[in-house]
């Protein structure tokens, strides 16, 4: 069963649709990154997934339970929906976590120390949150989110406001949680960073899920052929080739390179070069959003 599942989720305010028909699934242990320009609906989607907002169409499930019908579905959920995360400024970090632990049904006091240590917050744990830096609050937010060992983690720009060490700490934590079987859905503008460990990227634009890009085991080939437009048109007709596109005078495609080469030579195209290339998520994203 998917850890998180959205079925045609949409949200409109009055007549204005903010999100339309978004369907996606995140399996246990999978990291799903949501990317999209500002105003594309990422935060709205996160609010819908976490049950903070209600969809005007569709449904959201956490381990098979509808998050909007049953508040108890959120027992599986850990989330940070604001950057930096919000806490009571007059309580210490530890006291804030103690309150969160009570609300989440966590009885072990030692778990609070564990997550504080994991997020390198022990030295400020007994200081009032009002005196925390933005980065410390953001890390405390993550500590609160993982406090009850959730099976689904939903994070809105988790590295926002963090210094490079903090960013690395968060990425390391997410990798580790993913290996432990936690499903992670996060929104981000830092595609290069998350592409190191995300399994799938969903590209949002204009309130729609424009594309889903699977990053695992993805092999992309760079082809330099003349004339490139004709070669691209030919590749698009081949069943062994997927996602062919022009980029800076060359063609990037996925699929079978031998079949592609054979077809091009048969049709008389001049092939200058064909070699595997690391998938450039950022460029792909930029093109996908531009042509949306």
């Amino acid at each position: 069963m998917e850890a998180l599942r959205l079925e045609g989720v949409g949200k409109r305010y009055g007549r204005k649709p903010v999100l339309q028909g978004v369907s996606l699934q995140v399996a246990p242990g999978e990291v799903y990154a949501l990317a999209g320009p500002n105003g594309s609906g990422k935060t709205t989607l996160i609010r819908l997934v976490t049950g903070l907002a209600f969809p005007t169409e569709g449904r959201a499930f956490l381990l098979g339970e509808d998050v909007h019908q049953s508040p108890s579905a959120r027992r599986h959920l850990g989330a940070v929906v604001e950057a930096p995360a919000a806490f009571y400024p007059y309580l210490t970090g530890r006291e804030n976590l103690r309150l969160q632990a009570y609300l989440a049904g966590v009885r072990e006091e030692s778990r609070i120390g564990e997550v504080l240590a994991r997020l390198r917050l022990l030295s400020v744990a007994d200081q009032k949150v009002g005196s925390y830096s933005l980065g410390q609050r953001q890390r405390l937010g993550l500590a609160a989110a993982i406090l009850h060992r959730p099976k689904v983690l939903v994070l809105d720009e988790p590295t926002s406001g963090l210094d490079p060490e903090g960013v690395e700490l968060v990425h390391g934590l997410l990798r580790e949680l993913s290996r432990e079987g936690v499903a992670v859905l996060l929104s981000t503008h830092h595609l290069q960073e998350v592409s190191q460990y995300a399994h799938k990227v969903g590209i949002l634009g204009g309130g729609r899920l424009l594309d889903e890009v699977a990053l695992n085991g993805r092999e992309v080939y760079r082809l330099e052929a003349h004339p490139p437009e004709g070669a691209l048109a030919l590749l698009k007709t081949l069943p062994q080739v997927a996602q062919a596109r022009l980029q800076g005078g060359a063609i990037l495609f996925e699929g079978n390179p031998e079949a592609a080469l054979q077809a091009l030579l048969q049709e008389g195209y001049r092939v200058k070069a064909l070699y595997p290339e690391r998938f450039d998520l950022l460029t792909y994203y930029q093109e996908r959003v531009k042509h949306a």
Binding site: L52, P71, L77, E82, L103
Partner: peptide
């Protein structure tokens, strides 16, 4: 205003 209502409602707590 301080954002803590969302933090509370993320927990499995009936509104």
């Amino acid at each position: 205003a301080q954002g803590t209502l969302k933090t509370l409602l993320l927990r499995p707590l009936p509104r």
